[in-house]
Every structure is written in C-alpha cells, then in structure tokens.
C-alpha cells in the first residue's frame, strides 16, 4: 500500500499536481467516493433524475478534491526560496555590546542562525535544544541568535533565566528578518561553510533534526 501511494504521488507530481503520500491517499480516497457515487446513481437510475445527480457530482467533485488537498497544508509551512542560495548578509550588534557580527565573514564552518523573541512561547523549549547542540558542536559549528521586535532589557532577563551559549544579535527594524523572509518565530537557518543556506526550520527545532542537518556540513 505504501509503495503504491509513493508511486501515485510521484506520478501525480510529474503530471502537474504536486502531492505527497498523504495527498496521494486523499486523491485515492476521493476517487473511490466519486466512483461509488456514480455507481449509486446508476443503480438507482430508475428512481433518480440522473441529470441532477451527475450534474451535481460534476460540480461538487473537483471542489471537494481541491479543498481536501489544500486543507492538508499549513499555509505557514512555506518552502523558503533562499534554500540553495547564498545567505543574505547582515551586520548586527550583539546585545552584550561587543563588536558587530558580519555574517559573510563567518565562513569556514557551518553556521546556525536562529530567529527568536522573548514574547515567543515555543522559543523557550527550542532555546534549550539550541544551547545543548551549540555546546556539543563547539569548534565545529557557529551559532547565532537573532532577536527581533524586542528590547535589550527583556532579552537580558530572559537569557539570565534560560542560559546562553552563543552570541545573541539584535535585529533593529526587522531588516534581517525581512531579508530572510521570516514569517514568524522561531525560524532557524542552516548555512554551510561557503555561506549557502542548506535548510530552513519553521517552528521550534528538535535536536535530532538539527543534528541531521548539521552533521553532514561539518568540515565543509
């Protein structure tokens, strides 16, 4: 069954309807229902007005298919157009007042750029993950937090409570957020040693997924 769904998904994608396995299952289920209704109409053709039955089906079926497929997607889970491109450069100041950090100078090892804010609830749990992975990958990968739409005082208090293991940069005027196409926080970008974005996490990162994206880049 799984193999059939995979091949169906591939076939539909090449035919112009990009779907994953869940989408292929939806299309299959819809096809079964539509054929069932057609069969029902034919079976009851003496007592039914077939024109209304099939006419209504012809109008409703495409609508149901489109809605069924579309509602499976979260509109905020958007493929970033930046994946595979050079990460937009920025020069931001760390909140502890040390020298400004320029992203294009951070070549030679993979870089993780995490957009967050103190008013973001899911960022709390994610922060612990990032700190743990940052400590583990010390010397092998660089981590930067970019805080936007926030205040230094609040950020300081937050970090005192939650701990810190890497520089936190302040994005004034949300300019870096706009350059990176940030739809909300948290979002995390994985950048390889040549400055090319290899992956974008939308929502809190989980340790396993983060390591999966980071590990192959070490030594690049």
């Amino acid at each position: 069954m799984g193999a059939m769904l995979t091949s169906l998904a591939a076939a539909l994608t090449t035919a112009g309807l990009p779907v994953d396995e869940a989408g292929a299952a939806t299309v299959l289920g819809w096809l079964v229902v539509v054929l069932g209704l057609v069969a029902l109409g034919l079976a009851l053709r003496r007592t039914m007005n077939l024109k209304i039955w099939f006419g209504g089906l012809a109008l409703a079926a495409p609508l149901v298919l489109v809605l069924g497929l579309a509602f499976q997607n979260d509109p905020h889970q958007i493929d970033s157009p930046l994946v595979g491109k050079t990460a937009p450069d920025f020069t931001l100041s760390p909140i502890d007042g040390s020298a400004p950090v320029r992203l294009s100078e951070q070549r030679g090892m993979p870089t993780v750029v995490n957009f967050w804010a103190t008013w973001c609830e899911p960022c709390k749990a994610e922060h612990r993950t990032l700190v743990a992975v940052a400590r583990r990958m010390e010397g092998k990968a660089r981590f930067f937090g970019v805080v936007y739409q926030d205040e230094v005082a609040k950020i300081d208090a937050w970090l005192d409570k939650m701990g810190s293991a890497y520089p936190q940069l302040l994005d004034v005027g949300s300019k870096a957020a706009i350059a990176y196409g940030v739809y909300g926080v948290p979002e995390t970008y994985i950048i390889d040693g040549n400055g090319v974005i290899t992956y974008k996490f939308t929502g809190p990162v989980e340790a396993g997924a983060l390591m999966q994206q980071l590990a192959p880049l070490v030594g690049s």
């Binding site: 920025f90 909140i95 205040e151």
Partner: peptide
C-alpha cells in the same frame, strides 16, 4: 500580531540587506 515591543534605541543600526 502577537504583542510586539519597539526595538531598543541603544543598539547600533543593523545593516541587513540585500
């Protein structure tokens, strides 16, 4: 929008940009 705060005035201006 979630509640948002004005950015701190004491930070150096960011230059992000494309």
């Amino acid at each position: 929008a979630p509640p948002v705060e004005a950015p701190a005035a004491d930070a150096a201006p960011a230059r992000a940009a494309i």
